[in-house]
Protein backbone atom coordinates (compact mmCIF):
# COMPACT_ATOMS: atom_id res chain seq x y z
CA UNK A 1 0.00 0.00 0.00
CA UNK A 2 2.75 2.34 1.07
CA UNK A 3 4.72 1.39 -2.00
CA UNK A 4 1.75 2.13 -4.23
CA UNK A 5 1.46 5.55 -2.65
CA UNK A 6 5.14 6.23 -3.27
CA UNK A 7 4.86 5.04 -6.87
CA UNK A 8 1.87 7.30 -7.40
CA UNK A 9 3.68 10.32 -5.97
CA UNK A 10 6.86 9.59 -7.96
CA UNK A 11 4.81 9.08 -11.09
CA UNK A 12 2.92 12.31 -10.59
CA UNK A 13 6.10 14.28 -9.92
CA UNK A 14 7.77 12.92 -13.04
CA UNK A 15 4.59 13.39 -15.09
CA UNK A 16 4.34 17.05 -14.14
CA UNK A 17 7.89 17.58 -15.31
CA UNK A 18 7.22 15.68 -18.53
CA UNK A 19 4.15 17.79 -19.20
CA UNK A 20 6.10 21.01 -18.69
CA UNK A 21 8.86 20.03 -21.10
CA UNK A 22 6.57 18.67 -23.79
CA UNK A 23 3.45 20.84 -23.93
CA UNK A 24 5.18 23.55 -25.97
CA UNK A 25 6.16 20.98 -28.57
CA UNK A 26 2.56 19.86 -28.89
CA UNK A 27 1.30 23.44 -29.20
CA UNK A 28 3.74 24.30 -31.98
CA UNK A 29 2.92 21.09 -33.83
CA UNK A 30 -0.79 21.72 -33.45
CA UNK A 31 -0.64 25.12 -35.12
CA UNK A 32 2.41 25.08 -37.38
CA UNK A 33 2.42 21.34 -38.17
CA UNK A 34 6.15 21.32 -37.49
CA UNK A 35 7.80 18.90 -35.11
CA UNK A 36 10.31 21.23 -33.55
CA UNK A 37 13.55 19.40 -32.73
CA UNK A 38 15.03 22.71 -31.56
CA UNK A 39 12.57 22.39 -28.66
CA UNK A 40 15.36 20.59 -26.81
CA UNK A 41 17.81 23.47 -27.24
CA UNK A 42 15.14 25.98 -26.22
CA UNK A 43 14.78 23.90 -23.07
CA UNK A 44 18.55 24.15 -22.58
CA UNK A 45 18.54 27.90 -23.22
CA UNK A 46 15.80 28.28 -20.61
CA UNK A 47 17.78 26.19 -18.15
CA UNK A 48 20.96 28.22 -18.70
CA UNK A 49 19.10 31.54 -18.51
CA UNK A 50 17.32 30.44 -15.34
CA UNK A 51 20.48 29.11 -13.73
CA UNK A 52 22.64 32.13 -14.50
CA UNK A 53 19.96 34.58 -13.32
CA UNK A 54 19.36 32.63 -10.11
CA UNK A 55 23.11 32.52 -9.45
CA UNK A 56 23.31 36.30 -9.92
CA UNK A 57 20.22 36.84 -7.80
CA UNK A 58 21.45 34.62 -4.98
CA UNK A 59 24.91 36.16 -4.97
CA UNK A 60 23.30 39.57 -4.63
CA UNK A 61 21.70 38.25 -1.43
CA UNK A 62 18.19 39.43 -2.24
CA UNK A 63 14.95 38.03 -0.79
CA UNK A 64 15.38 34.28 -1.26
CA UNK A 65 11.89 33.23 -2.47
CA UNK A 66 12.21 35.85 -5.18
CA UNK A 67 14.42 33.34 -6.99
CA UNK A 68 11.27 31.53 -8.05
CA UNK A 69 10.08 34.69 -9.78
CA UNK A 70 13.51 35.03 -11.34
CA UNK A 71 13.06 31.62 -12.96
CA UNK A 72 9.80 32.77 -14.50
CA UNK A 73 11.38 35.96 -15.81
CA UNK A 74 14.29 33.99 -17.26
CA UNK A 75 11.93 31.66 -19.12
CA UNK A 76 9.89 34.55 -20.51
CA UNK A 77 12.98 36.43 -21.60
CA UNK A 78 14.64 33.40 -23.20
CA UNK A 79 11.50 32.27 -25.02
CA UNK A 80 10.42 35.70 -26.18
CA UNK A 81 13.84 36.47 -27.62
CA UNK A 82 14.73 33.10 -29.12
CA UNK A 83 11.28 32.11 -30.36
CA UNK A 84 10.51 35.03 -32.70
CA UNK A 85 14.10 35.20 -33.91
CA UNK A 86 14.06 31.54 -34.93
CA UNK A 87 10.58 31.68 -36.46
CA UNK A 88 11.03 34.94 -38.37
CA UNK A 89 14.67 34.30 -39.25
CA UNK A 90 14.51 30.68 -40.32
CA UNK A 91 11.35 28.64 -39.86
CA UNK A 92 9.03 30.87 -41.85
CA UNK A 93 11.00 30.27 -45.04
CA UNK A 94 10.05 26.63 -44.85
CA UNK A 95 6.26 26.93 -44.64
CA UNK A 96 4.69 24.86 -47.35
CA UNK A 97 7.75 22.66 -47.73
CA UNK A 98 7.69 18.95 -47.02
CA UNK A 99 7.45 18.00 -43.33
CA UNK A 100 10.83 16.22 -43.51
CA UNK A 101 12.49 19.40 -44.68
CA UNK A 102 10.91 21.35 -41.87
CA UNK A 103 12.02 18.71 -39.40
CA UNK A 104 15.57 18.92 -40.68
CA UNK A 105 15.54 22.70 -40.55
CA UNK A 106 14.66 22.52 -36.88
CA UNK A 107 17.38 19.88 -36.48
CA UNK A 108 19.89 22.30 -38.02
CA UNK A 109 18.68 25.01 -35.66
CA UNK A 110 19.18 22.53 -32.83
CA UNK A 111 22.79 21.85 -33.88
CA UNK A 112 23.52 25.56 -34.15
CA UNK A 113 21.92 26.38 -30.80
CA UNK A 114 23.89 23.58 -29.11
CA UNK A 115 27.16 25.29 -29.97
CA UNK A 116 25.75 28.78 -29.42
CA UNK A 117 24.78 27.97 -25.83
CA UNK A 118 28.32 26.68 -25.35
CA UNK A 119 29.71 29.94 -26.73
CA UNK A 120 27.49 32.03 -24.46
CA UNK A 121 27.62 30.04 -21.24
CA UNK A 122 30.81 27.98 -21.64
CA UNK A 123 31.05 24.31 -20.78
CA UNK A 124 31.34 24.58 -17.01
CA UNK A 125 28.20 23.54 -15.17
CA UNK A 126 25.83 26.03 -13.58
CA UNK A 127 24.12 25.29 -10.29
CA UNK A 128 20.98 27.05 -9.16
CA UNK A 129 19.93 24.80 -6.29
CA UNK A 130 18.87 27.68 -4.01
CA UNK A 131 15.18 27.57 -5.02
CA UNK A 132 15.20 23.77 -4.86
CA UNK A 133 16.18 23.72 -1.22
CA UNK A 134 14.21 26.81 -0.25
CA UNK A 135 10.86 25.22 0.41
CA UNK A 136 11.84 22.37 2.71
CA UNK A 137 10.47 18.85 2.66
CA UNK A 138 7.18 17.03 2.69
CA UNK A 139 7.05 13.57 4.23
CA UNK A 140 4.92 11.06 2.35
CA UNK A 141 4.83 7.33 3.01
CA UNK A 142 7.79 7.60 5.36
CA UNK A 143 10.17 9.25 2.91
CA UNK A 144 11.06 12.86 2.25
CA UNK A 145 10.15 14.75 -0.89
CA UNK A 146 11.36 18.22 -1.64
CA UNK A 147 8.44 20.66 -1.60
CA UNK A 148 9.86 22.00 -4.86
CA UNK A 149 8.58 18.89 -6.64
CA UNK A 150 5.06 19.86 -5.64
CA UNK A 151 5.67 23.42 -6.72
CA UNK A 152 6.57 21.93 -10.10
CA UNK A 153 3.28 20.07 -10.04
CA UNK A 154 1.52 23.35 -9.37
CA UNK A 155 3.40 25.12 -12.16
CA UNK A 156 2.49 22.31 -14.57
CA UNK A 157 -1.16 22.44 -13.54
CA UNK A 158 -1.28 26.23 -13.86
CA UNK A 159 0.40 26.03 -17.28
CA UNK A 160 -2.12 23.46 -18.45
CA UNK A 161 -5.12 25.40 -17.18
CA UNK A 162 -3.70 28.66 -18.45
CA UNK A 163 -3.18 27.26 -21.93
CA UNK A 164 -6.66 25.75 -21.95
CA UNK A 165 -8.14 29.11 -20.96
CA UNK A 166 -6.03 30.88 -23.55
CA UNK A 167 -7.07 28.60 -26.38
CA UNK A 168 -10.76 28.26 -25.44
CA UNK A 169 -11.61 31.57 -23.89
CA UNK A 170 -9.59 34.32 -25.55
CA UNK A 171 -10.17 35.83 -28.94
CA UNK A 172 -6.65 35.04 -30.07
CA UNK A 173 -7.05 31.51 -28.88
CA UNK A 174 -10.13 31.03 -31.04
CA UNK A 175 -8.22 32.35 -34.02
CA UNK A 176 -5.54 29.77 -33.27
CA UNK A 177 -8.15 27.01 -33.17
CA UNK A 178 -9.48 28.20 -36.50
CA UNK A 179 -5.99 28.06 -37.99
CA UNK A 180 -5.48 24.56 -36.60
CA UNK A 181 -8.65 23.40 -38.30
CA UNK A 182 -8.16 25.09 -41.62
CA UNK A 183 -5.41 27.58 -42.36
CA UNK A 184 -6.71 28.40 -45.84
CA UNK A 185 -10.23 29.30 -44.78
CA UNK A 186 -8.82 31.24 -41.82
CA UNK A 187 -6.77 33.39 -44.14
CA UNK A 188 -9.80 33.89 -46.34
CA UNK A 189 -11.66 35.09 -43.24
CA UNK A 190 -9.01 37.72 -42.62
CA UNK A 191 -6.71 35.99 -40.15
CA UNK A 192 -3.14 37.25 -40.19
CA UNK A 193 -1.46 33.87 -40.47
CA UNK A 194 2.11 34.97 -39.90
CA UNK A 195 1.09 36.77 -36.72
CA UNK A 196 -0.56 33.60 -35.44
CA UNK A 197 2.51 31.57 -36.36
CA UNK A 198 5.06 33.86 -34.75
CA UNK A 199 2.95 34.23 -31.61
CA UNK A 200 2.45 30.49 -31.30
CA UNK A 201 6.11 29.78 -31.89
CA UNK A 202 7.06 32.35 -29.27
CA UNK A 203 4.57 30.85 -26.82
CA UNK A 204 5.88 27.34 -27.50
CA UNK A 205 9.44 28.58 -26.97
CA UNK A 206 8.45 30.23 -23.70
CA UNK A 207 6.98 26.92 -22.57
CA UNK A 208 10.15 25.04 -23.54
CA UNK A 209 12.25 27.62 -21.71
CA UNK A 210 9.88 27.43 -18.74
CA UNK A 211 10.45 23.69 -18.53
CA UNK A 212 14.20 24.33 -18.66
CA UNK A 213 14.18 27.16 -16.14
CA UNK A 214 12.21 25.19 -13.57
CA UNK A 215 14.38 22.11 -14.15
CA UNK A 216 17.59 24.11 -13.63
CA UNK A 217 17.41 24.16 -9.80
CA UNK A 218 17.32 20.39 -9.54
CA UNK A 219 20.09 19.54 -11.96
CA UNK A 220 23.58 20.51 -12.91
CA UNK A 221 23.12 22.61 -16.03
CA UNK A 222 25.67 21.29 -18.54
CA UNK A 223 26.00 21.10 -22.33
CA UNK A 224 23.97 18.28 -23.81
CA UNK A 225 20.90 18.45 -21.56
CA UNK A 226 18.74 19.41 -24.53
CA UNK A 227 19.24 16.15 -26.47
CA UNK A 228 17.81 14.07 -23.67
CA UNK A 229 14.65 16.11 -23.52
CA UNK A 230 13.78 15.87 -27.21
CA UNK A 231 13.02 12.17 -27.34
CA UNK A 232 11.14 12.29 -24.04
CA UNK A 233 9.01 15.18 -25.25
CA UNK A 234 8.40 13.48 -28.60
CA UNK A 235 7.28 10.31 -26.86
CA UNK A 236 4.88 12.17 -24.57
CA UNK A 237 3.35 14.12 -27.42
CA UNK A 238 3.01 11.12 -29.72
CA UNK A 239 1.47 9.00 -26.97
CA UNK A 240 -1.00 11.73 -26.15
CA UNK A 241 -1.82 12.65 -29.71
CA UNK A 242 0.04 15.31 -31.63
CA UNK A 243 -1.18 18.84 -31.14
CA UNK A 244 -3.53 17.99 -28.31
CA UNK A 245 -3.08 19.72 -24.93
CA UNK A 246 -5.17 17.13 -23.11
CA UNK A 247 -3.11 14.50 -24.90
CA UNK A 248 0.17 15.94 -23.63
CA UNK A 249 -1.19 15.77 -20.09
CA UNK A 250 -2.47 12.22 -20.53
CA UNK A 251 0.75 11.08 -22.22
CA UNK A 252 2.86 12.60 -19.45
CA UNK A 253 0.74 10.93 -16.77
CA UNK A 254 0.85 7.53 -18.44
CA UNK A 255 4.60 7.57 -19.05
CA UNK A 256 5.29 9.06 -15.62
CA UNK A 257 3.33 6.41 -13.78
CA UNK A 258 4.62 3.48 -15.82
CA UNK A 259 8.19 4.61 -15.38
CA UNK A 260 7.80 5.10 -11.62
CA UNK A 261 6.29 1.64 -11.32
CA UNK A 262 9.18 0.18 -13.31
CA UNK A 263 11.79 1.88 -11.12
CA UNK A 264 10.21 0.47 -7.96
CA UNK A 265 9.11 -2.95 -9.14
CA UNK A 266 11.23 -3.92 -12.17
CA UNK A 267 14.26 -1.64 -12.50
CA UNK A 268 15.51 -3.75 -15.44
CA UNK A 269 12.75 -2.31 -17.61
CA UNK A 270 13.39 1.36 -16.82
CA UNK A 271 15.38 1.92 -20.00
CA UNK A 272 12.55 0.59 -22.16
CA UNK A 273 9.49 2.03 -20.46
CA UNK A 274 9.12 5.12 -22.61
CA UNK A 275 9.49 3.26 -25.89
CA UNK A 276 7.32 0.34 -24.84
CA UNK A 277 4.53 2.69 -23.77
CA UNK A 278 4.86 4.59 -27.04
CA UNK A 279 4.81 1.44 -29.18
CA UNK A 280 1.91 -0.06 -27.21
CA UNK A 281 -0.24 3.06 -27.43
CA UNK A 282 0.41 3.53 -31.13
CA UNK A 283 -0.47 -0.09 -31.83
CA UNK A 284 -3.85 0.29 -30.15
CA UNK A 285 -4.54 3.90 -31.07
CA UNK A 286 -2.45 4.79 -34.12
CA UNK A 287 -3.00 8.52 -33.65
CA UNK A 288 -2.25 8.59 -29.92
CA UNK A 289 -4.65 8.82 -27.00
CA UNK A 290 -6.24 12.11 -28.05
CA UNK A 291 -5.29 12.18 -31.71
CA UNK A 292 -7.96 13.31 -34.13
CA UNK A 293 -8.48 11.61 -37.45
CA UNK A 294 -8.14 14.16 -40.19
CA UNK A 295 -10.36 14.24 -43.23
CA UNK A 296 -8.81 12.36 -46.13
CA UNK A 297 -8.19 14.60 -49.06
CA UNK A 298 -8.65 12.92 -52.36
Amino acid sequence: MNQLLIIAVDGLVFASWLFLVSVGLSLIYGVLRILNIAHGSLFAVGAYAGASLVVAYSTAGLWAPGALGVLLVAALAAGLVAGPVIERGIIRWTYGREPVMQLLVTFSVFLILEDLTKLVWGVSPYYAYQPYQLLGQVRIGGIDYPAYSFLLLLVAALTGVGLWWFVRRTRFGRVVVAVIHDPEISVAMGVNLSRVYVTTFALGSVLAALGGAFTAPMISVVPGIGVEVIVLAFAVVVVGGLGSLEGAAAGALLIGLVRAAAVHLLPVLELFTIYLVMAAVLLVRPLGLFGRVEARRI
Binding site: F107, S108, V109, I112, E114, D115
Partner: peptide, 9 residues
Amino acid sequence: QMLVGAAML
Protein backbone atom coordinates in the same frame (compact mmCIF):
# COMPACT_ATOMS: atom_id res chain seq x y z
CA GLN B 1 28.02 21.08 -34.82
CA MET B 2 27.29 24.71 -35.65
CA LEU B 3 29.12 24.41 -38.99
CA VAL B 4 27.30 21.22 -39.94
CA GLY B 5 23.98 22.75 -38.92
CA ALA B 6 24.61 25.95 -40.84
CA ALA B 7 25.71 24.08 -43.96
CA MET B 8 22.58 21.99 -43.78
CA LEU B 9 20.36 25.04 -43.33
